[in-house]
Design a protein around this nucleic acid. Structure first.
Lengths: 347, 347
DNA sequence: TTGTGCATGAGGTACGTGCCTCATGACATT
DNA sequence: AATGTCATGAGGCACGTACCTCATGCACAA
């Protein structure tokens, strides 16, 4: 490789020289500090564009006094998947710290939009560069996101998107595709056709609604011999889910398949095992957690679709890192893939 | 959070102070340079351990003149999966460069152990910090790996491991689990039992042999009603694979399933489509590439098991970064998960 | 004219590490 | 005793950015 082909990355010095201004002015422009005339700022922006200058994130993090700080707001409560997200944050913490990224985990009450909005609005830009939230679609939250963005805090949505907000990024799976995948598997599991029951947490949750849409569409298009029973709602609660499923099995002795697209899997497994029907019933559930693992192991559940919490946290951190420097751009992240788990390829 | 609870990361200065030596000596110990008595080095090591000192990778990369350089040796030839690995390297390149990591891609002749060994032995530690190779298990390669390690070049295996070598890390999937997963899916696809044919590239390839082991074991244990035909070997070649499968379909009109655990998928798909049997034959193949995507779309293939080339490259880079500083340790990486793809959840 | 405020330049220190030179003292070899 | 070798200290420059202070010059208004 020739020396000529190796072009040094442009630095602030290069930008200053090209724009005919001093380092201080470049710094003011880069960091949005006041004291620069519009015309001068324009010259600097142009030099940045011409040189293809990009800040060196590592040098930047080293120079500034405090680490980059990312705050995760994860719902509390009985949802095991949210616990696994929280654990993933803890697991990543030391690794992130080595890269000057400080992770902060705050558990918030599940489905408490007002509480989440309040927490968001109390974030000071000095102590938080990026907030990552799991939230349902409520106006208070949207407003709080927009306000935080204006204060200079990048906000990202995790698991469930809020496309109508000013959120900078979404990290999560394509839930419509997840529903289609469940249908595609179920169809192949039941080549003779039959009845398939669908249980959701609540259809007011965006993830759940999208999964149902995908499931219905794919089943209708590819496996017309299958009849859908439901959807029934178990509100992601183990006892309620167990009751629903017990009743379902009693009513439909010829049920061929069951798709639980929400949580409450502990109830699902206990109901299935109590019924004595596991084995001749194909069951698909979501999220690889303690109850679904137990279900896979016992044979009560055939397939678990999973959104890989560790991967989501990893990508959220990567996105936060990228966003920290480019206040304007949307970070490019690796997409989160839908994991499909059977008893034989458990993580 | 109290000031007291925030403990600054230990730096070389702290280590020097704690060990009662100068910065220069700490530097000599850290970078393995000569000129330090064993007793003194011991004091330094101890101080490092006590303080839990870890080099700041970013500062380190900034301070040294050249970027971290990672060289990928990817087999050339007609294997589409290898092409997708190469593309993944290209896709990552700009991102890695922003982190002071320079990626170098070298295509080598597939299955040419002597050539790969020669290339490895020509690597100078000045121009390569870490080599990533995809190789079969040959003595020349093992020797070249050991030699490179001794020269200070970290070597990692990708896709196919060489556990008997001095390789520092392996990035890839658990192929036995992949085979089990294929069996588990096939068993559920064929509840009435029947015949399942297995086609491999070559059973001398470690990946393929492991997949076959897993497939056989899981099928035997969980689905005794299924009978295995084969394995037949298509040598990862499209024409040979097509011929084998055409013959197979002619001989076994009642074939219920087909598992191609190697490459040559273009031949698989063309043979299936020519036979007019796709649709009533459950087919599982490996690696999401152009031919397998086409097969999924046309319905010739039901499921593709994939090892996520982009994820593998990402983890290889992360591991190389980690290894660059800890000449002693094995890097911890996120495991590569086996992707399961149907027509409905394509990447 | 003087004051006020703003845009900008100049230059410094700091972050943590790599890598270099030079000086010094201890010890061994001839 | 002279010479050489080696371990070590001291210190500096560099990487690219953040962030600070101070000075300067200019425009506009009182």
């Amino acid at each position: 490789m020739n020396e000529e082909t190796i072009r040094r990355r442009a630095t602030v010095h290069d930008v200053a020289r090209a724009a005919g201004v001093s380092l201080a002015t470049v710094d003011r422009v880069l960091n949005g500090r006041p004291g620069v005339r519009a015309a001068t700022a324009e010259k600097v922006e142009q030099a940045i564009a011409e040189l293809g200058f990009a800040r060196d994130l590592n040098a930047s993090l080293m120079a500034r006094a405090r680490d980059l700080s990312v705050v995760f707001f994860i719902p509390d409560g009985s949802n095991e998947f949210m616990d696994s997200l929280a654990e993933a944050v803890h697991r990543r913490s030391p690794l992130a710290l080595a890269d000057h990224i400080h992770l902060d985990l705050r558990r918030v009450r599940a489905l408490d939009a007002a509480g989440l909005a309040e927490s968001l609005s109390q974030l000071a830009p000095r102590e938080c560069d990026c907030a990552v939230i799991v939230s349902s679609d409520e106006p208070e939250v949207l407003a709080a996101i927009d306000a935080a963005q204006r204060r200079g805090i990048a906000v990202m949505t995790l698991v469930s998107d809020l496309p109508a907000s000013a959120r900078r990024n979404f990290i999560g799976i394509d839930n419509v595709a997840a529903g289609r995948t469940a249908a595609s598997l179920m169809g192949r599991f039941l080549p003779q056709g039959g009845k398939v029951a669908v249980v959701a947490g609540s259809l007011h949750l965006r993830d759940h609604a999208e999964r149902l849409d995908g499931f219905r569409a794919a089943l209708g298009a590819e496996f017309p011999a299958l009849e859908i029973i439901g959807p029934l709602e178990g509100h992601d609660e183990r006892t309620e889910t167990a009751e629903i499923i017990t009743a379902l099995l009693a009513e439909h002795a010829d049920l061929g398949g069951l798709y639980n697209l929400g949580a409450g899997n502990a109830g699902l497994v206990s109901a299935l095992e109590a019924s004595g029907r596991s084995g001749n019933l194909r069951v698909i559930a979501h999220e690889l957690t303690a109850p679904t693992r137990a279900g896979l192991a016992s044979g009560a559940i055939d397939v678990v679709l999973d959104q890989n919490p560790d991967g989501e946290i990893r990508e959220a951190i990567a996105a936060a890192r990228a966003l920290a420097l480019d206040a304007s751009r949307v970070a490019v992240t690796d997409p989160i893939e839908i994991g499909i788990f059977l008893r034989d390829n458990l993580r």
